[in-house]
Design a protein around this nucleic acid. Structure first.
Length: 880
DNA sequence: AGCACGCCGACT
DNA sequence: GTCGGCGTGCTC
């Protein structure tokens, strides 16, 4: 068994209780030390491993979910673990729905014999007293061990006398993995509802039930018929209906949609579709379609034949909550074969969707990044829409994987085609297009050979993380602690003698061999559907506006565009890249800037409602406070806000265009479930004239009535200290501009900036992706930044500022002699934002040649002093 | 990770 | 002599 416990390296042996059947690949719950943890069954062994006594072996506690890992799927997880230098178990955890690998909780509760709170026994030490009164504070007298230790220092020791006297008991709360939800269901079985033996009321109920399909959840039936369960039970007794428990799939509410049929394709769409249909398994294509060119229709028609052949399709989108329109279109085309999977679902909904995928019925799964691990048995196609979007890269907990990279491996392992779609392709994909002049420079996003892998392993001499595949090869590591490799290599010998009948163990590859990523077939969609023109983009120099005496945040041309739009009954979108009211608040008298107490970040001003008191919020840790009336440094009353965000823009509209009704679309107004869809529906229904929003506006929104797009200030995007700032600015601006003129009315875009000469602005205005990419590639080549080189970022954090700095320097010193000549160390240096949520952050960057094998950094994490944490980010996207 | 154990300084 | 803090090691 592989246990879900960091630091527990290797495999552990358990007995199988008689009442359980366990197959390799099952997800288990096992006792481990003083707790119960999640585990994966790897293989059955006939005899105890050497050095292990029978009394040491415990039985498996439960099977959480039966066999879910196919050989290919397992190889995919191993590849992710290996490339992103993350323990396999952690990769498994990201691939599974949350809660499946739950661990037990140590809890403590008062027993009935415990003394009354009013009469505490006097012969107890102060800490014991405190623990007792803490327990008595809650009505149940029940706390987790951990919480009690937080509240009362030294609680764990103080509990001992209490437990001895029998006043307190300590118990293990078993993990509660999600389970299928069962509900009573009513089915009409009698064809004729006019039976003689029915009362009038029973007859009526039966008729209502039958009229609408005859298949109901008991709850709904009772409500609709305004009846009681007694009536239905009588109907059941008389044989007219059947009542039985059935699993009810948990699903977010979805609107009823009219089905639609495939649309006629333009010539370009048709050409792309033909090419897609001819893709062999493991081949990949870049579908480069300008905004509004109908990529979605191509996806739909490419998927349809795969479904018909009994295969499933996987569609990855940047953020699903943001794209109700896309999921609706898929539902209209494929009905309930569409399955949505993303992190905004509740635990139960995710679990149900995940189990549905396992059943092998052909489906279309639409999901975010983590859906690349959807357990679909017969995968026929993978589509990554908005392939360039940075949210496909995970940067918080390891593995810091890029869904596009993982998709390439998966497409190869499952032998299915991969489609990358975008209006503004990433440089990585652009360079990988076949026939482009990059030759051997082509970034092989994944290209580790077995040679690399074994070299890496030998480099780190025993400190390397334990890898299952090592067992198969035998144990070359001398340093791996305890007897694991020995006993396990013995197991291996046992297993290898077995005939290759039904695989007795989880198929584990000796080392994840993955071929270089294939070249991309280039499929352009250079025109919008119905030959609609791309909207012209006018760039407005805001410096000249100021000179002309215009102090408004709206230029004269944006102002007039909005006025004509209002007269013509069109709708508009205003884009600003920051939410909230303003970017920071500072004192006019002394220059003091309001800062977050826990981060090195200025606080943003928010004004939830038009006249409410302003609130200051930290966008990094969520800290918030009311805006003080006087400067905390000098007591001056002149605290002023600078810069503008969505709230400020909305306010300005209300002041300057009272006739225009506006809606705000940012993460403040879309926080609750379903609010995206609600806002978009209201806007589409004409409840507002202007939609004011952030980046969110760029993602998969198709609003045909929009004729005007105003970019209130492009500058905030252009000047970020990140080598990808230009690329991201170009992508966002182009995508926002592309929201205009998607209906019958032509659109126009007004781009306001203080630096119209910036090359990104020019490229956006010319709407020329190729030009932009060519210049950008040139610049990156000079510095050997990706896609011409590769990066690894070590993020080191701790609440102790000196310790982080020292650790970062130590790591640099350890790595320097280990790295090959084609890698160099940049830093260490404090991170661009040196402190977030009271943790100090340092960065250590490794830059290597494109063909250079990745250095093995897995040995560093165990060297971290306590309180210091290290994240290894392979191919980082943002360096902030 | 989480928990137990054992060492060591501080305080009654 | 005891309490409580902290580093170390183990989990089939």
């Amino acid at each position: 068994v592989l246990v879900d416990c960091p630091g527990a390296q290797g495999l552990f042996t358990y007995t199988v209780p008689l009442e359980l059947t366990i197959t390799p690949g099952d997800i288990l719950s096992v006792p481990f030390g003083h707790q119960q943890v999640g585990a994966i069954a790897i293989r059955a062994v006939a005899a105890l491993p050497q050095g292990l006594e029978a009394h040491q072996v415990k039985p498996v506690a439960a099977v959480i979910s039966p066999g879910v890992f196919s050989p290919h799927y397992w190889q995919l997880l191993e590849a992710v673990a290996d490339y992103y230098q993350t323990p396999l178990m952690q990769v498994i955890r990201t691939a599974l729905p949350p809660g499946l690998l739950a661990r037990s909780q140590r809890r403590v509760r008062l027993t009935p014999t415990a003394p009354d709170a009013a009469h505490p026994p006097p012969d107890l030490s102060p800490t014991v007293q405190r623990v007792l009164s803490q327990l008595q504070r809650s009505p149940s007298g029940d706390y987790t061990w951990q919480y009690l230790n937080q509240q009362v220092t030294g609680a764990s020791r103080a509990l001992r006398p209490l437990i001895q006297r029998g006043w307190v008991e300590s118990y293990l709360a078993l993990p509660q993995p999600p389970r299928p939800q069962r509900r009573q269901a009513v089915t009409v079985v009698a064809a004729d509802p006019a039976g003689e033996d029915l009362s009038p009321r029973q007859r009526e109920v039966l008729r209502v039930l039958q009229r609408r399909g005859g298949d109901w959840w008991l709850q709904d039936a009772l409500q609709t018929c305004r009846t009681t369960s007694a009536t239905l039970r009588t109907l059941a007794k008389k044989g007219y209906v059947e009542i039985c428990g059935r699993e009810k799939l948990r699903q977010p509410d979805q609107p009823d949609l009219a089905p639609d049929r495939p649309k006629t394709l333009t010539d370009h769409q048709q050409a792309a579709l033909t090419a897609l249909n001819q893709l062999a398994g493991g081949e990949a294509a870049l579908l480069h379609g300008v905004t509004g060119s109908g990529k979605t229709e191509v996806y739909l028609q490419a998927i349809a034949p795969r479904l018909a052949q009994g295969q499933s399709a996987l569609v990855l989108v940047p953020e699903i909550g943001l794209t109700p329109q896309l999921t609706d279109r898929f539902r209209q085309r494929f009905g309930d074969r569409v399955c949505v999977y993303h992190s905004a679902l509740s635990e139960g909904e995710r679990y149900d969707a995940w189990r549905q995928m396992l059943d092998g019925i052909p489906r279309v799964v639409i999901g975010t990044r983590s859906a690349i691990f959807a357990p679909l048995p017969h995968l026929g196609m993978i589509i990554l829409d908005e392939e360039h979007d940075p949210s496909f890269k995970q940067d918080q907990p390891a593995p810091c994987y890029h869904a596009r990279t993982v998709a390439q491996w998966r497409s190869h392992l499952d032998q299915c085609p991969l489609i990358l779609g975008s209006a503004t392709p990433s440089l990585e994909s652009w360079v990988a297009v076949e026939g482009k002049e990059c030759g051997s420079q082509e970034p092989e996003i994944q290209n580790f050979s077995s040679g690399d892998a074994s070299r890496r392993r030998s480099q780190s001499e025993g400190l390397t993380k334990f890898k299952i595949q090592n067992l198969e090869v035998g144990s070359q590591e001398s340093g791996v602690r305890s007897q694991e490799p020995v006993q396990n290599s013995k197991l291996k010998i046992q297993n290898s003698k077995l005939p290759l009948s039904p695989s007795p163990h989880l198929p584990i590859s000796p080392s994840p061999h993955l071929p270089p990523s294939p070249p991309l077939h280039y499929l352009p969609l250079p025109e919008r559907i119905h030959a609609r023109p791309l909207p012209p983009i006018s760039v407005v120099d805001m410096r000249q506006e100021l000179q002309a005496g215009n102090k408004s945040i709206f230029s004269r041309s944006l102002r007039s565009a909005l006025e004509t739009m209002a007269n013509d009954g069109g709708q508009g979108i205003l884009f600003i890249h920051r939410r909230g009211h303003s970017s920071f608040v500072s004192c006019r008298a002394c220059g003091h800037v309001m800062m977050c107490p826990d981060c090195d970040v200025s606080l943003s001003q928010h004004q939830p409602y038009a006249h409410s008191a302003p609130v200051l919020r930290c966008h990094y840790c969520g800290y918030s406070q009311n805006q003080p009336s006087h400067c905390p440094a000098c007591q001056s009353p002149y605290l002023k806000h600078f810069g503008s965000g969505t709230q400020r823009v909305e306010q300005a509209i209300q002041q300057e265009f009272p006739q225009l009704r506006s809606l705000r679309f940012d993460s403040d107004t879309t926080r609750t479930k379903g609010s995206h869809r609600a806002l978009l529906t209201r806007f589409a229904a004409g409840e507002a004239d202007v939609l004011v929003g952030t980046q969110m506006l760029t993602k998969g929104i198709d609003l045909p009535q929009v004729t005007v797009v105003g970019i209130v200030a492009a500058d905030g995007l252009l000047y970020m200290a990140d080598y990808r700032a230009s690329e991201r600015a170009f992508q966002i601006l182009t995508q926002v501009a592309g929201r205009a003129g998607r209906g019958d009315q032509p659109g126009r875009v007004i781009l306001q900036t203080y630096t119209p000469e910036h090359p990104v602005i020019g490229a956006v205005q010319r709407q020329s992706v190729a030009d932009f990419i060519a210049t950008e590639l040139e610049q990156r080549r000079d510095l050997t930044y990706p896609p011409w080189g590769r990066l690894v970022l070590l993020r080191i954090t701790s609440p102790n500022p000196d310790l982080v700095a020292r650790t970062a320097q130590d790591f640099a010193a350890t790595l320097a002699p280990q790295l090959s000549a084609d890698w160099q160390i940049l830093g260490p240096a404090p991170a661009p934002i040196p402190r977030v949520a009271r943790r100090y952050r340092w960065h250590l960057m490794l830059k290597g040649a494109i063909a250079a094998p990745m250095p093995d950094l897995t040995a560093l994490a165990p060297q971290c002093p306590p309180s210091v944490s290290l994240t290894v980010d392979i191919d980082p996207l943002h360096l902030g």
